[in-house]
């Protein structure tokens, strides 16, 4: 389980997170969404210990992330958005170097995934396109046999068939003991895959809920008129898509982009209907301080 408690983080004088609390139990594919610059990549790096919190703790199965102990590093792997690979190496050589450090590494899985993604394991990285390099790394990452897999914009650079393959592979290979976190802007690429959904903003976690809970609380109405009570409306072919509070209990098909926009524009309502995690006493204090400061101004 990944536990984030009272996390404060800033880059020099630019604050990124202030007092974030988040629990990510195993057994889910989390979608980490947020606007540019809210700190999605930073959060992934904090989870795998590549960054050190200013205050608070980030732990993976009880192990402090920034200690980067071998026990934790064997359980977690991150695939960053931008990768720098040794030009002369090949995917097979790359995994050969990693293999001794990951006891659950499965060569058969690696070869199978490479075949499925149509990349040759013995071709040099320098002879590959960015998309092929990315596919090689996806195959390598999923073959390591770690419990936690963090993807930062995994579908960037993938062509349309590869995106579908990525979704299929992830759904098929996902096991109960796994925790996968996908940070992305390309929500369409991972729709029907991510559940729960976490939406970050500069002020903290705006939404942390399962798809089922979101559907219980919000209704996505397709093809009607624009509704004045909608949290978010968007014109689409055939009418408006309205996101409204679900008062009937009827279930509707989730549209993640519309959800994202609705959440960003209606932070208080989202909190009121119970899709935002309950603030800790310290968070409440910080919020009260903020309000006091604003009223003083």
């Amino acid at each position: 389980m990944i536990e984030i408690r009272n996390l404060d983080f800033s880059y020099k004088k630019s604050p990124v997170f202030s007092n974030i609390n988040l629990s990510l139990p195993e057994g889910s594919i989390y979608g980490l969404l947020g606007e540019n610059g809210v700190g999605k990549t930073t959060l992934l790096k904090l989870i795998c210990g590549l960054l050190r919190p200013k205050h608070g703790t980030v732990s993976v199965d009880g192990l402090t992330a920034h200690d980067r102990l071998p026990e934790m590093l064997q359980r977690i792997v991150i695939l960053p958005d931008e990768v720098s690979l040794p030009d002369n190496s090949t995917p097979q050589r790359y995994v050969n170097e990693l293999m001794p450090f990951y006891p659950n590494f499965a060569q058969g899985t690696f070869l199978h995934l490479m075949q499925e993604l149509e990349v040759e394991p013995d071709r040099k990285f320098r002879e590959m396109s960015f998309g092929q390099q990315k596919k090689s790394l996806i195959a390598a990452t999923l073959s390591l046999g770690t419990d936690y897999v963090l993807f930062d914009e995994p579908t960037n650079g993938l062509d349309i068939p590869s995106k579908a393959q990525f979704r299929a592979i992830l759904s098929r290979r996902f096991e109960e003991r796994n925790t996968i976190i996908i940070s992305t802007h390309q929500v369409k690429d991972v729709e029907n895959l991510i559940d729960p959904i976490v939406i970050l903003s500069n002020s903290g976690v705006l939404l942390d809920a399962s798809v089922q809970r979101i559907q219980q609380k919000l209704f996505f109405e397709y093809g009607g008129e624009q509704r004045p009570d909608a949290l978010y409306s968007e014109m689409q072919p055939g009418g408006f898509l309205n996101v409204i509070p679900n008062t009937t209990g009827e279930e509707s098909q989730l549209n993640i982009e519309a959800l994202f926009n609705a959440v960003l524009r209606n932070k208080n309502i989202i909190r009121e209907i119970g899709l935002t995690p309950n603030p800790s006493p310290r968070e409440k204090g910080a919020a009260a301080d903020k309000e006091t400061n604003m009223s003083n101004q």
Partner: peptide
């Protein structure tokens, strides 16, 4: 990142 994430102390 590659070196930092290798499972070793």
């Amino acid at each position: 990142i590659y070196f930092a994430m290798l499972p070793a102390t």
